[in-house]
Write a protein that binds this DNA or RNA. Structure first.
Length: 339
DNA sequence: CTGCAAACACCGACGACCCT
DNA sequence: AGGGTCGTCGGTGTTTGCAG
């Protein structure tokens, strides 16, 4: 199962522009069904047989609180592999049922700060099932001259297009699936969609049908440690006794953060501050959390929370969202979904 | 005029993405 | 690996619109 959140800025298709009305997108999505002379091909949590106009009204009226340039809705694609489609007899009704469950998970995947849980009833969405998919100009088959842009791809190509409002049904909360991971963990949701398919249809996914976590290369850690030790030494040579850092402790933080960008970014900041003569007092806190100022004092467990926060923000750091397709790289990863 | 809420503007702390 | 840029979240403060 390949689940994708379309980025309208980089996707290239004007039809996915989401800063205004959903009319353009829906007009595009209804084209395929329009060819068969079918109307009313959209569905949502409760209803079936929604027309594009009805869904447009749902989405376009649910924008209170969003600014002019803000995204008003998001486009999602649920794309089963050919084997998965064969497993469910390419049954569109099964896919609708599946989509409803995946969208329930979409709602539940938002972590709101008051601990509130959202469900299907809190989100505004609609979807349609497409049976066909055509070649795009970036496809290798087209480059090789074996296919023309717009030609139908062979085999089972059924997939689901979803559009979901950027605002909750109460129009109080912004729901951005591309935002911070601790608010909406996109990969968690994508992985959950794959698991849902397996569970719902009794399917065992092959490795290439799953989200592939990318393993961090630990073999370079020794070299990294040496470099970090040098930098800590440099810092310690420039600052007063109170601000000196324990290399081992810094090492531990680096390891805990999986040598991520935040760690290096903050190490650079500590370095810079030591050079400018205004060294940082709470350098350990900065390195481990990425935040200069301590959390507002709430309870004695503040420090513990900061550590837990750091650990949470670490999980899955090195996984890649886009790399479910056979091809590598962002652009080529889009090859397997035509829109 | 006051009081209130929506809309807007701004800011710090990030993560995602791009590039070298 | 690591720097630069951009956009988002969520908080705070300010402006605007409007009823009373």
């Amino acid at each position: 199962m390949y689940v994708k959140l379309i980025n309208p800025a980089t996707h290239g298709q004007a039809a996915y522009n989401n800063s205004g009305s959903s009319a353009q997108t829906l007009n595009y999505l209804k084209q395929e069904t329009g060819k068969d002379g079918q109307e009313a091909a959209f569905f949502n949590s409760e209803e079936d047989g929604l027309s594009a106009a009805e869904l447009m009204a749902d989405i376009d009226s649910n924008v209170k609180g969003l600014r002019a340039e803000d995204a008003k809705f998001y486009s999602l694609v649920l794309s089963p592999s050919e084997a998965e489609l064969a497993h469910i007899d390419n049954d569109g009704e099964k896919l609708k049922d599946y989509t409803r469950k995946v969208m329930e998970q979409y709602a539940q995947n938002f972590q709101l700060k008051d601990g509130k849980q959202l469900g299907s009833e809190d989100i505004v969405w609609g979807a349609t099932v497409h049976q066909e998919r055509s070649y795009r100009g970036t496809d290798p088959e087209v480059a090789a001259g074996n296919a023309k842009v717009g030609d139908q791809r062979p085999g089972l190509q059924t997939h689901v297009h979803v559009i979901v409002s950027a605002r909750d049904a109460g129009q109080k909360i912004s729901l951005n699936p591309a935002g911070r991971r601790n608010r909406f963990d996109l990969m968690k949701w994508q992985a959950g969609a794959g698991k849902q398919f397996e569970k719902q249809f009794g399917y065992t996914a092959q490795a290439h049908e799953k989200l592939r976590p990318k393993q961090r290369d630990a073999s370079r850690d020794a070299a990294r440690a040496v470099k970090i030790a040098e930098r800590v030494g440099g810092i310690n040579g420039r600052v007063g006794k109170e601000q000196r850092l324990d290399p081992a402790r810094v090492q531990q933080i680096a390891e805990g953060r999986q040598y991520d960008k935040t760690f290096y970014r903050m190490l650079s900041r500590v370095e810079e501050r030591s050079k400018s003569g205004s060294p940082i007092d709470n350098a350990y806190h900065l390195l481990s959390t990425g935040k200069e100022r301590p959390e507002p004092q709430r309870s004695a467990s503040t420090v513990l929370q900061a550590v837990q926060q750091a650990v949470r923000s670490n999980t899955g750091r090195d996984e890649q969202t886009e790399n479910i397709a056979e091809k590598k790289g962002r652009r080529s990863a889009e090859l397997d979904i035509e829109m």
